[in-house]
Simulated scan of single mutants.
Amino acid sequence: MIHEVDEGLRRLLAESGLEASGVEVVFDAPTRDWAARRSAPTVCVFLYDIREDHVRRGSGAGEVFDADGFVVARRTPPRWFELTYLVTAWASRPQDEHRLLSQVLTCLVNTDTLPPRLLTGTLAELGLLVDVDAGGTGKDAPAASDVWSALGGELKPSLGLRVKAPLAGLSTVTAPPVTDGLVVRSVPHRSGTEPGAPGRAESGRERPSGEEDGARRLRYTQGGEPGPEGFGGPRERRAVPARRRRGERQP
Rank of each mutant, 00 (worst) to 15 (best):
C44R: 05
D33H: 12
E19N: 12
V45P: 00
Y48V: 05
F46D: 01
V23P: 00
V25L: 08
L18G: 04
A36L: 10
S16N: 06
A29M: 09
R37T: 13
P30Y: 00
S39K: 14
T31K: 06
Y48D: 06
V43Y: 02
P30V: 04
V23E: 01
L47R: 03
D28W: 11
T42A: 08
A20Y: 08
W34Y: 15
D33P: 07
D33W: 08
D28R: 13
V45K: 01
F46P: 01
S16F: 01
W34D: 07
V43K: 01
C44F: 05
V26Q: 07
A40Q: 14
F27C: 02
T31C: 05
V45M: 02
G17L: 07
V25T: 09
P41G: 05
T42W: 02
P41K: 03
F27P: 00
A29V: 08
S21D: 15
F46R: 00
F27M: 07
G22L: 00
A36P: 06
G17C: 07
R37E: 13
L18Y: 04
W34V: 11
W34N: 09
G22M: 04
V26H: 00
F46N: 00
R37L: 09
A40E: 14
A35L: 15
Y48N: 02
E19R: 15
D28F: 08
F27V: 00
P41C: 07
A40D: 13
V25Q: 02
A29T: 08
D28P: 03
A35P: 04
R37W: 07
E19A: 15
A40W: 11
F27D: 00
L47D: 05
R38F: 09
A40G: 10
Y48A: 06
S16V: 04
V25N: 04
L47C: 10
V45R: 02
P41T: 05
S21H: 10
A29R: 01
V26D: 07
V23F: 00
T42P: 01
D33G: 10
F27L: 02
T31V: 09
F46V: 06
S16K: 03
L18R: 02
V26F: 04
T42G: 02
S39D: 14
F46A: 06
D33Q: 14
A29E: 11
R38K: 12
A29F: 01
G17S: 08
Y48E: 03
